[in-house]
Design a binder for these strands. Sequence first.
DNA 1: TTTTCATATATAAATATTGACATATTAAAC
DNA 2: GTTTAATATGTCAATATTTATATATGAAAA
Lengths: 193, 193
Amino acid sequence: MKREVKNCIFAEIEMNSLAYALLAMVARKDCSGYELVQLLELFWQAKHSQVYPLLAKLEQKQYVAHRLVKQNGRPDKKIYRLTEQGREILSAWIHEEPAVPVVRDEFLTKIYAIWLTSTKRARELLHERIQYFTDMLTDRLLKIREMEERWSDDLYDPHSPQFGRYMILQRKTRLEQEEINWCHWVLERLKKD
Amino acid sequence: MKREVKNCIFAEIEMNSLAYALLAMVARKDCSGYELVQLLELFWQAKHSQVYPLLAKLEQKQYVAHRLVKQNGRPDKKIYRLTEQGREILSAWIHEEPAVPVVRDEFLTKIYAIWLTSTKRARELLHERIQYFTDMLTDRLLKIREMEERWSDDLYDPHSPQFGRYMILQRKTRLEQEEINWCHWVLERLKKD
DNA sequence: TTTTCATATATAAATATTGACATATTAAAC
DNA sequence: GTTTAATATGTCAATATTTATATATGAAAA
């Protein structure tokens, strides 16, 4: 009962979380690898060095296909689209239980041990954090506005390809706002010092 | 200008983010490896298979030291404490700029592509997510209450070893509450369907 | 005019992380 | 009575991820 029987003996791909994330992205909209890295940032950070080879494997498996797009001033790009087979395994995967989310945040380690140093450094860290999340939030709100202008009512239609991304953008802005609120709350606590 | 000169030629440890996280944890309170895995969950998930060998390396570097504690009904444990050298490099590290946070969340990939399947599955995913974060939140609030009963005023003193953990617990409850709020907001949007 | 930045793709080596295997004790559930 | 769960530590192989290197284009900045 140990051996999983795979459907092909050569070039077997481990369909991992990132692989499905890439399929989910190209399902909404045809994308280049370069663009995928940026879109992914919303909930699954990955470097291009991980994305490009994985896209090649997904194409080999025929879950995606690409066309070459020549550009005027820039290097050509490969625009990937989801194939019917890709759509099928992605749909099936959605019905499996999602893995627990993973978060790794160095800033919090530093706050954890901040008592060892100074409240000055604490304030510094918090102000930088506020700046970081404020920038993120600004960008996020811009993207929300862009989507609203382009798709309006579709964004609230669960059958629209845009629905998921819009909901997730909304979620991210809420969380980022809450991160900022918390920073201010901590800064208040540091004032007394 | 390529080669970084290291201070020792043998048994060199790559002091990575997890290593500092472990130091930060034992700085607050002496801990076993088993306990560290659990405490770490708050902002840096790691398996014991990563933690135990790393603790051994940190001890070899003399950043931590352990004592054996015999237990009545359970296996003996190694309780680690931070050494003076450990405290020094941890303090120094706090003054470096933190790496950007990393989040990887399969649930969001599924929501991203939910338009491919059914709103029934969407509701299912959201209800499970609410359950997950409600459980997390309950546990988190319990831990907050435990800390408040045990340390009361210390928790608002930035020089207390407990300060950081308390602030970070507060942050996590805020974010988890916001995750739940967002789920309900999305569920409202799915009702019309 | 030289550097830097954003766009674009790609690979190899190093490092980080997970999953599987291993062992041991006790209490509680079945 | 046997299994399951929680406590506790550890190793090794497999997988995932990052860092470094490479190349190419054009615009903008220094």
